[in-house]
Design a binder for these strands. Structure first.
Length: 737
DNA sequence: CGTAAGACGGTTTTT
DNA sequence: CCGTCTTACG
């Protein structure tokens, strides 16, 4: 075999079939752990190596930046050179790139701004205000959601039919949507949904433009196809349906059993319908799983078989060493005992040399992480919560970004509004309203209206402050041309008083915020231009994560998709929580199936050990709630699981917490967890204790080092650690320092 | 105009 | 229980 084909030799038969079927549409149904990414990247490389297309003639689409980055790296590795000039990226990044070329066709210019969610809501509120809609009665969030749903379905305001209008604000939703879109055009801005919507609209209505793109892209590759929404599907179909049927080379990879994003517009029907959309499509199934042990695979398969309307796959093991321990199902008295159980097992694993990076706790909802965090802190086990607040979503970063946006685009009203009184300059609602009035009358951006107002404002203090701000931007723009964006940004943050504001701030977060601002400047250095940096931030809401350390991962099931770990804890498998009552109320049977897919995703993350657990009682937002074990536990194959703990539970529970009582099956009020009066459990609370520590004391913690006590509550201390985040710990774990 | 106390509500998340 | 948003006052 020639070296040329080495990359094919590493594939199994089904993977190879998926890679080598280059002509015509192909759907690859890739079960969990079957080498999906390998197939996608190898196929990409194969197209290039076989001389079918140049790198710039392949369109490769992913959902996340992470997936795009991975694919880029792996394609580069196979073709042996850095992959330049590729059309490889997220739906949004690729659409932004296309839209910059055709912006004028939808009333924008190529320099348009991409708004973040904050901006979107603020803009929509303004539009609603202007239309005389009572924002208190009709929350902007609700309308925003409706608009997003329309955008997800490729509906411009003109395409929304009266029948699709909602009752919102007395049937004004459609009109408000149109007004919002108009405001976006006025601001030369696009929100995330617009990136897809505008490009799709252009491709639909400008055959010449579409023909150009047809000539460019010979092959299309799509990752996670089951997660596409309608507008993404339309965009793909437009690009894929080239004039000659033989050249419709689209390859979509996905798994209908892992479709878990319907609530944000994903349509599982897109994948179920693929063969109808692309007649003659080849369907390849990847069913050899290289990740998990047999019991885990069997449990996951048995569970997911309860869903209807699947395309159907049978996962089988592809490993020689696939025998392993059964899936553990542990019943516990309450959520604290559950946290203890998980913590103890993690400690035991650590003692026997297990790497913490190979352990994950996967929960249904974010609030569940807390109990585990507290337990892990107490035990001194390092952990990380995946998917918490992102760098670019932090307040100080958003403020700084707003300053930079005004610098780059004086017409960016939303950014200007955000920083006009940050730090406080005495420019409140009154001054802002005045600015808006001038801007509207003169039809000029806010920052220009500010210049006028700086001369006329009545209040001397405010007038002076505004003048300084306006002059500042003049200076900084001149500096930008001379000294570049990094120096200018540093100067701007100092001279505007923004850095000073945080230096003066005595709160515990202030030093961290200043540190983040430095990090922002560092990140800017990696970009040639300010515009390039702003685009990056708008589309890639993440920074490179700190070096991987040996930590337990804590995250939601959604965030875990695409990851794998040796040992996976799946706590909180209780009716009401998982499946989520709220989902069921909203979406009925369909929602139940999606919850089940979520359970399937969770189980299939595990390589060797899966530990499912259910607690009979759980503290939710301070209230004790009781629940019965999840129906999903009953849907696991009994011969592949090992039940533990039912006997250990205290006798106050119905004989066994696995007992369902007469109300099993079906769902509705009867299955809802019953709220138990707090009084019943209060006797079990530990008695109040006193602690020698008080706020302000310096203390030392074995794991987190030195810190300052911020608050004291019985024997629990809230401590600001010098080298770690603010945490709650029990006083017996610290000593005076 | 800015601050401080009460009401409210609180899956899942990317871009 | 805890963070966010609104409203009332100085």
């Amino acid at each position: 075999m020639s070296t040329h084909d080495d990359y094919l030799a590493r594939l199994n038969a089904e993977q190879r079939a998926a890679v080598e079927a280059l002509d015509g549409p192909v759907l690859v149904l890739a079960g969990a752990g079957t080498g999906k990414t390998r197939v996608l990247t190898t196929r990409f490389a194969h197209i290039l190596k076989s001389g079918r297309a140049w790198p710039g003639q392949v369109l490769a689409v992913t959902f996340t930046n992470k997936a795009a980055r991975e694919m880029r790296e792996r394609v580069s590795a196979i073709i042996g050179e850095p992959a330049e000039g590729l059309w490889l990226g997220t739906f949004h990044a690729l659409c932004a790139r296309m839209l910059r070329r055709h912006a004028e066709l939808v009333g924008l210019t190529s320099g348009f701004t991409i708004l973040d969610t904050d901006d979107q809501i603020r803009l929509l509120k303004q539009v609603m205000d202007a239309a005389g809609v009572d924002v208190k009665r009709w929350p902007a969030n609700g309308l925003m959601a409706a608009i997003q749903r329309w955008k997800d379905r490729g509906l411009t305001p003109e395409r929304v039919t009266p029948a699709e209008d909602t009752d919102y604000a007395g049937g004004k939703a459609r009109a408000l949507y149109a007004a919002y879109q108009q405001r976006l055009r006025d601001l030369n801005a696009a929100d995330f949904g617009d990136l897809l919507l505008h490009v799709t609209e252009i491709l639909r209505t400008h055959p010449d433009v579409l023909a150009d793109w047809h000539r460019r892209f010979r092959y299309i590759l799509v990752d996670e196809y089951q997660d596409t929404n309608l507008v993404q599907y339309l965009w793909l179909r437009l690009l894929a349906q080239r004039p000659e049927p033989m050249h419709r080379n689209i390859c979509c990879v996905g798994d209908d059993d892992q479709s878990i994003y319907s609530w944000r517009g994903a349509e599982i029907e897109n994948i179920l319908r693929f063969e109808k959309d692309f007649p003659g499509a080849k369907v390849v199934r990847l069913e050899s799983n290289y990740r998990s042990t047999k019991p885990i695979l069997a449990a996951a398969s048995h569970l997911i078989a309860h869903n209807t309307g699947r395309l159907g796959k049978t996962l089988r093991t592809g490993r020689n060493d696939a025998d392993g321990e059964k899936v553990r199902v542990v019943a516990l008295w309450d959520s604290e005992e559950e946290a203890r159980m998980v913590g103890d097992r993690i400690e035991a694993a650590r003692r026997s040399g297990h790497s913490l990076a190979e352990i994950a706790i996967l929960v249904r909802a974010g609030f569940q992480t807390r109990a585990f965090e507290e337990r892990l802190i107490t035990l001194g086990v390092p952990y990380r919560v995946v998917g918490g607040a992102k760098f670019y979503e932090r307040q100080e970063i958003r403020d700084a970004m707003a300053y930079l946006r005004v610098l780059a685009q004086p017409a960016d009203d939303l950014a200007f509004e955000r920083i006009v009184n940050v730090p406080k300059r005495g420019l409140g609602d009154t001054a802002l309203r005045e600015m808006h009035r001038i801007a509207r009358e003169e039809r000029i951006p806010l920052s220009y209206a500010a210049e006028t107002l700086a001369g006329t404002l009545k209040l001397a203090k405010a007038r002076q402050a505004l003048r300084e701000l306006v002059q500042g931007f003049g200076r900084w723009r001149a500096l930008l041309a001379k000294e570049g964006h990094v120096v200018t940004a540093a100067t701007l943050l100092d001279e505007s008083g923004y850095t000073e504001m945080w230096k003066q701030d005595r709160s515990a977060e202030a030093p961290g915020r200043l540190e983040n601002l430095k990090e922002l400047l560092r990140a800017m250095g990696e970009f040639e231009t300010l515009a390039g940096f702003l685009e990056h931030v708008a589309l890639v809401m993440e920074t490179d994560e700190a070096a991987e350390q040996d930590r337990v991962s804590l995250m939601t099931l959604h965030a875990a998709k695409g990851l794998e770990f040796d040992m996976v804890f799946l706590p909180g498998w209780e009716e009401g929580l998982f499946p989520s009552q709220r989902s069921l109320d909203e979406g009925g049977e369909k929602a139940l199936e999606e919850e089940r897919r979520l359970a399937y995703v969770g189980l299939t993350r595990a390589r060797r050990h899966a530990i499912v657990s259910a607690a009979a009682n759980r503290r939710v937002y301070g209230n004790w709630t009781s629940a019965i074990p999840s129906r999903f536990i009953d849907e696991l194959p009994p011969e592949q699981i090992e039940r533990e703990g039912a006997e250990r539970s205290r006798p106050a529970m119905p004989a066994s917490v696995f007992d369902r009582g007469p109300l099993t099956g079906g769902f509705g009020a009867a299955r809802r967890p019953r709220v138990i009066e707090a009084g019943l459990w209060e006797v079990q609370e530990r008695p109040a204790r006193t602690t020698p520590f008080k706020p302000g004391d310096r203390v030392f913690h074995q794991k987190f080092g030195p810190g300052t006590v911020v608050a004291v509550e019985e024997d629990r201390l809230e401590i600001d650690f010098d080298k770690a985040e603010r945490k709650r710990v029990l006083d017996r774990f610290v000593e005076p320092g």
